[in-house]
Design a protein around this nucleic acid. Structure first.
Lengths: 161, 161
DNA sequence: GAGATTAAGTCTTGAAATAAGACTGAGTCA
DNA sequence: TGACTCAGTCTTATTTCAAGACTTAATCTC
């Protein structure tokens, strides 16, 4: 499978992965969520090859996940900021961080704590159902074909997720 | 950076990505969540190179995300099932699927709908704070060093996420 | 009992992505 | 004038990946 053709596949996960399903891309976004915006700062913090960083940033801008904003003139220089589409990836990233905390933290505990400013507490991310508000468990979810289902999709059979 | 050394880095996201930060790995897990368990079924559905599939499954078993369970003898054959650690990736996958639905669905709508058996409704995944129950926004989260922080970590400065 | 089939892989080969680091260019600072 | 900053691009060697033929072990089909 060629990944640049994946966006045509009728699967939201495959389409999402065609954009962010890459280690460097997600680490770049982690830095964005931590407030990093400039090329050299990304490079120094990630120790990423400049060529790879350049490619990823350009791709993320093309996809609308980041946007280039000029922060000085003479010479004009740009920084990379999250768009709303980029901010919408936060749930994915925070849940993955917490998975890492849970299964790969040092015995001492997680390296970083997340504090919810609204309530003032350190928290874990809990994924809940938009309809009933209960915490979601994969075993309690059923799949069924949606309006965008293609005729070909074998995955359209109702199946326990 | 070599990815096999990433687990030693003091960052939960990097450690998590060292395991699941790969397109094929996440698509394999998607199939697992859809109930697929056998080598040939993964291969047929994903059209993945057998070599790559074999590698990914072995790695996921080594990491404890999947486990091999014999389902017949003569010859003994195994299927791959999610462990609890594997099920714990559901929040990450469901939020990424919904991100794909939101930004990459056909005009008709998402290809697959998710139904919560507990309440009977189609739902979106909402990430909430474990402490106050409110929906989380990246802008309302602050980072601070946790017990596992290394002395080296520049990321330990308190920073808006 | 010969040959096809099923399941779960391994092997080979060519193509693509990555890492490391030198190089470029436009402008400022000392 | 020369060093420095920032944001890249370019080159080359290494690593990883994709495609698909091949292997093994056992069972079904005729």
């Amino acid at each position: 499978m060629r990944w640049d053709s994946l966006d045509r596949e009728n699967c939201s996960l495959a389409r999402a992965l065609a954009v962010v399903g890459d280690r460097w891309t997600l680490l770049v976004l982690r830095e964005s969520f931590m407030g990093i915006r400039r090329f050299d700062d990304f490079e120094k913090r990630l120790k990423i090859a400049r060529r790879v960083l350049s490619e990823r940033l350009t791709m993320l801008v093309d996809e609308g996940v980041l946007r280039k904003v000029p922060y000085q003139e003479k010479p004009t220089r740009y920084e990379y900021r999250l768009t709303d589409k980029g901010f919408a990836l936060y749930p994915t990233i925070i849940t993955l961080v917490h998975w890492g905390d849970r299964f790969y933290a040092d015995s001492a505990g997680p390296p970083v704590l997340h504090t919810h400013r609204t309530c003032g507490h350190d928290f874990r991310a809990v994924v809940t159902c938009s309809e009933c508000g209960e915490a979601l468990d994969a075993r309690a979810v059923t799949l069924r074909p949606g309006p965008g289902t293609l005729r070909s999709a074998g995955r359209s059979r109702s199946k326990t997720a």
